[in-house]
Amino acid sequence: MTQHTSGSGKMVLVLTLITALSGAILAAWDSYTAPKITYHREQALLVAISQVLPAHDSTRTVVLNGQTFYEAFAGDSLVGVGFQALGNGFQGQIRMMLGMTPDLETITGLEILEQVETPGLGTKIAHDPSQRSDPEWFTKQFNGLLPSPELTVIKNATPTHSNEIQAITGATISSQAVVRILNQQIESARQAFRTGSEVVHG
């Protein structure tokens, strides 16, 4: 059995060796996986950007007043601006990618990047399995909306105005959270984008 007692010297030595070995393994593994993980994150973001913005052939990232914007160009002309909107939903944070026209007046698309709403209810903001023909109907409603003065949620009725969206049955709070986050962030994005000093990244 290994139940012999040892001096503190051996303990220190063994623990040091084990942690050093552990460090070496992790360092090697990290240098192998880190690029892949970064790649996946960027891909997810790029896919989201391309989905919420109108057809474009190039994008660039600008930081204005500390907020990141993704500008989409078709040839030389700016066709859309995307930015992330983040805020609290029913249970946790909802992170979204919102695409708008360059004047930030019309929504061109919305993607839910991350959410931890109630499974089967609030999760329908991202994917509604009960609508098999169109599981993403909720986010699609935002296409072409004019958030001026601001977006509003209506229940159990078909929207009639260009700033209205229909709430998900049984998930009013999550639906309202999405709209509330968007209203706030569109407002701050307008300020940053229209007045901000520009720092261009690639």
């Binding site: 290994t2 139940q3 012999h4 007692t5 040892s6 051996k10 303990m11 063994v14 623990l15 084990i18 942690t19 552990s22 393994i25 992790l26």
Partner: peptide, 18 residues
């Protein structure tokens, strides 16, 4: 046979965490 009895849990946790 190499890990001292007194620090075995610490050693196991480091190895498992790795």
């Amino acid at each position: 046979n190499f890990i001292p009895h007194q620090v075995r849990i610490a050693s196991y946790i480091v190895i498992i965490a790795t």
